[in-house]
Computed example of a mutant assay.
Amino acid sequence: MKLHPANFSHQYIFTGYGDGYVVINQIRYEKNLIVLPDQLIENWPIISISELEIQHFENLLPHALEIIILGTGISHQFPNYSLLSQVAKMGVGIEIMDTRACCRTYNILVEEGRRVGAVLFI
Rank of each mutant, 00 (worst) to 15 (best):
N107H: 10
G20D: 11
G20E: 08
V22H: 02
Q55R: 11
D98E: 12
Y12V: 03
F14P: 00
V110W: 05
K2Y: 07
N43T: 07
F57W: 05
Y29A: 05
G93T: 05
K89I: 01
P37L: 06
V22S: 07
I41R: 05
E112D: 14
V22G: 03
I34F: 08
G73A: 07
H4D: 06
Q77I: 12
L36H: 07
S85G: 09
L33G: 06
Y29H: 15
T105R: 11
E111P: 03
K31T: 14
G16K: 02
I46R: 04
A64Y: 12
Q55G: 00
L120H: 00
H10T: 02
Y106L: 10
G117M: 04
I49V: 14
T99Q: 04
I13T: 07
F121I: 07
A6W: 04
Y106M: 04
Y12P: 01
V87T: 04
E30R: 13
L52V: 08
N43Y: 08
D19A: 15
F14L: 05
V23M: 13
N43G: 07
L3I: 14
G73H: 10
Q86F: 01
E95D: 14
G113D: 12
G91C: 07
P45Q: 12
V35Q: 06
P5F: 06
N59M: 13
V119E: 00
L83H: 12
L3R: 06
V116H: 02
L36N: 06
I46E: 05
H56N: 14
V35T: 13
F78E: 09
I74A: 14
L65D: 09
E95T: 08
